[in-house]
Design a protein around this nucleic acid. Structure first.
Lengths: 188, 188
DNA sequence: CGATGCATGTAAGCTGTTACATGATTGC
DNA sequence: GCAATCATGTAACAGCTTACATGCATCG
């Protein structure tokens, strides 16, 4: 019996349930929102149905404590859930997973020549300044973690910093190149 | 009159039409598939409707050459399309765009402690080897480009290499840490 | 003349988003 | 008492994927 592969958001949410169990769906949303670099909005409309889906597949167990005044539902990962999470994690070594990274800045860089030379340098300067701010926030977030407490969260967050640094360094080189080349003038 | 903001895939496709115009929708798909690091499958079911959508918004112009035996349709970007592409590009400096990067490896790293110590090191070793291969392919792709021909494509591809190098370096550090710590044993 | 590649599309389904809607609890 | 936060959901919609379907062109 093969477990249907989890989506990225499902994998992350299941992992968060595991890390913070027992926890509410609300907590999972908060954790997603707190992450300084995340593609997901973690809207109620995605997280609640998603966790219901995971429950239907018996990957998480919901327990509604009757004693709890508000209708709070606590989540826990099941043994099947652990297996599914492991399978999702191991899928990470597949080439199509490794290469499926998205970087909206890099995507845009390919089409920078749609801008005038003046616009190009102005845009790159603003971008670098925003990236610097993003990097500082990412470092701040890393500062709240320790290697002793949760090594995985610490190293994951460290990766975010390292990648942000690489992006920033690259942007600086791009800006330098565009300044010396005085823009990449269209040939048409 | 504000132009409705383009999605990521729309922006990339519009930019590709511009770079290769006049070109077919098929060509746009090929270009997307050829990119060594792309989140998009560029399936027919997404690209064709997408370009029809862009045509309806007058961002691209379709010209069906009657002389052409096969029912080939050539695409060109319109002036409105250039404006929309510019707007999409400039949106890149918004914090939510900068931080919306996704990295499936980094996502998984947060939950590595679901694996046993032996599984952890085995997985990281395989991952590093796959990342090395991915990096070499990315470098090969960069090698096919020159700074003189299309500076943007060259620098964009250079960014892919730099980020891949940062990811790989980070993965090596993670592997080293996990080996010395002999895994991150669960406390429960 | 058959395989591969060029070329265009559609239908069903899943996932995620925005916006809306409700109510309990906690802190000031 | 009132605001902010905790907490859970639904409905409409947009976007992308898989799988299916078709036909022409080119090369061996």
């Amino acid at each position: 019996m093969t477990i249907r592969m989890l989506t990225e958001l499902e994998g992350v949410c299941l992992g968060l349930v595991r890390r913070h169990e027992p926890c509410t769906a609300y907590r999972v949303r908060q954790e997603l929102k707190a992450a300084p670099s995340s593609h997901w909005q973690a809207s109620a409309g995605s997280v609640y149905p998603l966790l219901t889906r995971l429950e239907a597949k018996k990957l998480v167990a919901k327990t509604s404590d009757a004693a709890d005044g508000r209708g709070r539902t606590l989540l826990r990962i099941t043994r099947r859930g652990q297996a599914a999470l492991t399978q999702w994690l191991l899928m990470g070594k597949e080439p199509e997973v490794i290469s499926s990274m998205t970087d909206p800045i890099r995507s845009r860089m390919f089409f920078l020549n749609v801008l005038s030379a003046a616009q190009q340098t102005a845009y790159l300067d603003e971008l670098i300044s925003e990236m610097e701010y993003y990097l500082s926030r990412t470092k701040d977030h890393l500062g709240t973690l320790t290697a002793d407490d949760d090594l995985c969260a610490f190293l994951g967050s460290q990766g975010a910093v390292k990648i942000a640094e690489a992006r920033l360094e690259w942007l600086r080189e791009v800006a330098a190149k565009f300044r010396t080349q005085s823009g990449n003038i269209e040939k048409r």
